[in-house]
């Protein structure tokens, strides 16, 4: 791919020469990112015309954006579905059973006291439970995607977002220790 191809390509997987899938080789992504970054770095074009410099900046921005999108699993899953024509909207989620579970998990987490002598064990136990649920949820997304049931896959990714938020909440709690 030359720089014009990268600029006009609509597919980050193509830019990073990866096959379009929910699982990617992170090492390959990183290596390709470093290569592309060097190739299009705006400093390389410091002596170039302003048009060349602008192109370099646009390329650099696109490569960075693509890298962030493909690197993070949840963003990668969402991106895969946008490539299938789905658009992520801010529609309110109303699956009561699922939301009650989410509420319960948040309540459980809020009851963990950072001053508790067993706080580490409690966080570990919570994380184990959470990771099992995330793995299960990720599995549901992958099977829906593989059967090309993209609408179901979309719903599974939305549910993953709620788990992801919880994971961030746990990390914030761990930072307080």
């Amino acid at each position: 791919m030359n720089s014009q191809d990268i600029l006009h390509s609509k597919n980050y997987f193509e830019i990073f020469e990866l096959s379009e899938s929910f699982d990617i080789e992170i090492n390959e992504l990183n290596a390709r990112f470093r290569f592309l970054q060097k190739a299009v770095h705006p400093d390389q074009h410091a002596m170039g015309t302003s048009k060349e410099q602008l192109l370099a900046q646009q390329l650099s921005a696109k490569i960075n954006d693509g890298y962030q999108t493909l690197k993070t699993p949840l963003l990668r899953y969402r991106y895969l579905l946008t490539l299938k024509g789905l658009e992520f909207k801010e529609h309110t989620h109303k699956d009561t059973g699922f939301l009650m579970l989410q509420m319960q998990l948040r309540e459980d987490l809020s009851e963990i006291d950072v001053n508790d002598s067993k706080v580490d064990d409690k966080i570990d136990a919570f994380n184990e439970q959470l990771n099992n649920m995330i793995n299960h949820q990720t599995g549901s997304f992958k099977s829906a995607y593989l059967t090309q049931d993209y609408n179901s896959a979309y719903n599974e990714v939305v549910k993953l977002t709620f788990f992801e938020k919880l994971k961030q909440d746990v990390e914030r709690l761990e930072d307080q220790l």
């Binding site: 992520f88 801010e90 529609h91 309110t92 989620h93 109303k94 699956d95 009561t96 699922f98 939301l99 009650m100 989410q102 509420m103 948040r106 939305v158 977002t161 709620f162 992801e164 938020k165 919880l166």
Partner: peptide, 13 residues
């Protein structure tokens, strides 16, 4: 009423 915001993961009862 249980609702959630898919964009940010907020949950409201």
């Amino acid at each position: 009423g249980m609702v959630g915001a898919p964009a940010c993961g907020d949950v409201m009862r």
